[in-house]
Design a protein around this nucleic acid. Structure first.
Lengths: 122, 122
DNA sequence: TTCTACAGTATCCTTTTCTATACTATACCA
DNA sequence: TGGTATAGTATAGAAAAGGATACTGTAGAA
């Protein structure tokens, strides 16, 4: 049990709050796209996310906007133009996304290794 | 856009994998309890998680066990005794949980501040 | 004049997640 | 002899998340 525990008391834990913002089938990928490519238009994002429906994309973007993670900029044009980008505040999520990516990548290996060991033990 | 981006390519992102392990209504709290209090028996955990059903607790524990995050130790006794604890590997999640907790706590403040500013602006 | 691009809504349906409740076996205690 | 504690399982149902599909209005191009 490490030093961290002094700070996280399960009863007042905010992990679930943070998690709630990242959870959603497409949210992490959307964030990574915006972080990597900067400002993107709605259909640009849609094309980057094969399989997503318009409804889902709208909904995930709205939820991220609600939390001040991304910004939505509407241009009064026809046909419409709407641009999405990460807010300055939103970039504070980057280290967490990065840590999760690294952990996730390692986990894939960990599980593979475990499977191999189990097969070998037979 | 920071240096991190060199490493996380949305197309091969593992964030969702990591997220999948943490997601579940009770998983973060269960992990925090085990990290804080060490080995715990089934009913001990149950008492620490007001509102959880036995089915849910069993199911969340099984999922975490499946990913090698926690260990389940059964004692051949009657009445039964089963102990749960974080594996060594499981502790590798701690920095992430900690980062999310800190971010989440700050986010609560951020949202409050935003609300205040908006109210003030009227 | 019909077609396309744009950024969405609206409606319905399926799948997944979570909850509620009842049930199990057995040792020990009063 | 009946009640309690233990660690679950079984079954049914409610709620939330996600998917499929059709529709909108308007400018500009073919």
């Amino acid at each position: 049990m490490s030093d961290y525990n002094e700070e996280i008391v399960p009863e007042m834990c905010k992990v679930t709050d943070a998690l709630g913002i990242l959870v959603g089938k497409w949210k992490p990928v959307i964030l990574l796209h915006l972080l990597k490519n900067g400002t993107q238009r709605f259909n640009e994002l849609k094309r980057s996310l094969p399989g997503i429906t318009q409804k889902m994309l709208t909904n995930q973007l709205r939820e991220l906007e609600e939390e001040d993670i991304i910004e939505r900029k509407v241009y009064a044009q026809v046909p419409p133009k709407v641009e999405y980008s990460i807010t300055d505040y939103g970039t504070s999520l980057e280290p967490i996304l990065h840590a999760m990516h690294v952990w996730g990548a390692n986990h894939t290996i960990h599980k593979q290794t475990k499977r191999n060991n189990q097969a070998e033990a037979k």
